[in-house]
Design a protein around this nucleic acid. Structure first.
Lengths: 135, 135
DNA sequence: CTGCAGTTGACAATGATTCTCAACTGATTG
DNA sequence: CAATCAGTTGAGAATCATTGTCAACTGCAG
């Protein structure tokens, strides 16, 4: 069940291309966006492959995935440590933040209720300085 | 923009029915599930109407909405104060939790980075006592 | 009772994500 | 280098949740 077998992951042209574009932006982009970036960069990669690759990377913990308000999955490469995001609702600018206290709190709350194998999702949304100016 | 006009909300049979079933379960259910519950309860309500009603209720803050792992929106009636959820990954049991400290922390972090109009999402997942026994 | 704005429902339309499956490719072996 | 084979890919079909369309309907005020 909890198979830790990552399986072979051949470094193909497509996979390298996806990892490549992931390094060119700092905010969250949808799989479709990433596919377009790839295409406009001259890299021919199928949409299905982009989805598969992104899923694999997310699985391997090399990219963060979260859902925007429409429920679409959006991706972004990330540092390998556990963290959360502060995202600008308007321009998408993202800041990675850490909160040891929150980590502790969630674990405590969960254990208090007898829950084990605890995990959590936490995202903060707001309007960044640059965007709060324009109406 | 920030129109506070709730608009008339006529208490129709359909709307009452939706609110009705929302009171019959304590975990999160998808719009489709709710529609089926309604149907099997003999209430004829169109799927589109269920979606519309749920959206309206969510908008009015009378129900909580969150996304399950597949990105589907799931709903549940809730208390009117701001809170978060501790959800059992296995059986779906839900506990509402509050964390003033977390609220303060997110606001502080956001302001520290110049973000305004801050909001956040926080859900805790785990395995409840009842479920952690079975393999 | 009448009229109208708010509602509804059946169904089409959208759109993201997944599935299918034959063709392809990279690493390995002889 | 050529054969081999499991892992990969891509084009397009298939899913499926959610939203849009629009004519018919329904509470409620007058």
């Amino acid at each position: 069940m909890t198979s830790t077998d990552p399986g072979p992951l051949r470094p193909t042209r497509q996979r390298r291309a996806v990892v490549g574009v992931l390094g060119t932006f700092a905010d969250f982009r949808s799989a479709q966006d990433i596919h377009e970036l790839l295409t406009s960069a001259g890299e021919k990669v199928g949409l299905a492959t982009v989805y598969r690759t992104l899923a694999a990377l997310a699985d391997a913990g090399e990219v963060d995935v979260l859902r925007n308000e429409d429920g679409e999955a959006v991706y972004r490469s990330c540092s390998d440590s556990h963290h959360h995001h502060l995202v600008c609702r308007s321009c998408g600018a993202t800041v990675e933040v850490e909160g040891p206290a929150v980590e502790r709190w969630t674990r405590a709350i969960a254990e208090q209720h007898g829950f084990t194998d605890v995990s959590h999702t936490l995202e903060i949304f707001g309007t960044c300085t640059a965007c709060s100016g324009s109406s």
